[in-house]
C-alpha cells in the first residue's frame, strides 16, 4: 500500500487517480500510523512552497514526514513536494524541510532557449530528463520520453544528490535524492504513460524494500 501524504496543499487527488488506474492500493492520509504502515509514501505538491510549508507546520506534519524519511521509509516527492525537501526556497522566502541540502531558485527570464529567445516563466509543458546516474524510477522508460513540468522555481540541491537534469535556459536538477528517497520536479501523475510507468517503478521498489525488511 502506498500512502499519499495529505497536507491539503497538493495535487493529491490526481496522484490518487493515477494509482487507482494502475491498480496500486493507496490511501490519502496524514495519520502517522497509516503512514508508518504504508510500503511507501508519495509526497505530492502543487502551488506555492510557502503555503505548503505553512500547511505542514500548522498541522505538525513537518516532523511526521521528516521522521518517516529518517526511518528510511521510501518517499517520492513531486513538484512542490520535491522542492520543500531542500533547505530553503526563494518562493515566499520559505524555510523548508532540510532533508536534502540545497535550495530552490526562481528561473531567470533573461536566460535564453536554443533559438536565443528569452525563456518564459513558469517553465510549463513537456520536457526531457537526462539521467546523471542510474535510477530505478526510470527503468524501462524511453530516454526520449517527455514529462510534464509546471513550475517557476527549480531545485538546486548539492551535486551529490543530483540524479537527473532538464534543459530550460540552464540545465537544472529535475530529479534529486538517493535510493529510496526520490524527488521529481515534474508531475508523473500527469505525464502520460512514461509518468505512470515511473509511479509503477516506485511502487515496485517499495514492495521490494518492504519484503526485504
Amino acid at each position: 500500500m502506498l500512502a499519499i501524504f495529505d497536507y491539503k496543499a497538493g495535487n493529491q487527488t490526481s496522484v490518487h487517480r493515477a494509482l487507482e488506474h494502475l491498480g496500486i492500493p493507496n490511501e490519502i492520509t496524514n495519520d502517522p500510523d497509516k503512514l508508518n504502515n504504508a510500503q511507501g509514501i508519495i509526497f505530492p505538491g502543487v502551488g506555492a512552497a510557502g503555503q505548503a510549508m505553512d500547511e505542514l507546520h500548522s498541522a505538525g506534519l513537518d516532523d511526521v514526514i521528516k521522521g518517516l524519511i529518517w526511518q528510511k521509509k521510501p518517499v517520492l516527492g513531486i513538484c512542490v513536494g520535491c522542492q520543500i525537501l531542500l533547505d530553503y526556497s526563494e518562493e515566499n522566502d520559505t524555510k523548508a524541510l532540510k532533508v536534502i541540502p540545497g535550495e530552490c531558485r526562481l528561473f531567470n527570464p533573461s536566460w535564453t532557449d536554443h533559438e536565443n529567445v528569452p525563456i518564459r516563466v513558469p517553465h510549463m509543458g513537456w520536457n526531457q530528463v537526462e539521467l546523471k546516474s542510474e535510477c530505478e524510477l526510470f527503468a524501462g522508460i524511453d530516454p526520449d520520453a517527455d514529462f510534464y513540468f509546471v513550475h517557476s522555481y527549480y531545485p538546486a540541491p548539492s551535486d551529490e544528490f543530483i540524479i537527473g537534469t532538464t534543459h530550460y535556459g540552464i540545465d537544472f536538477c529535475s530529479v534529486h535524492g538517493r535510493t529510496g528517497l526520490w524527488a521529481v520536479q515534474f508531475h508523473p501523475e500527469k505525464s502520460g504513460r512514461p509518468g505512470l510507468k515511473l509511479l509503477k517503478n516506485f511502487y515496485a521498489y517499495c514492495q521490494e524494500a518492504a519484503d526485504a525488511e
Binding site: 502543487v46 502551488g47 506555492a48 503555503q51 512542490v80 513558469p122 509546471v150 517557476s152
Partner: peptide, 8 residues
C-alpha cells in the same frame, strides 16, 4: 495565485 500558485 497566492492560494494555488501562479502556475495553475
Amino acid at each position: 495565485a497566492a492560494r494555488f500558485g501562479s502556475q495553475c
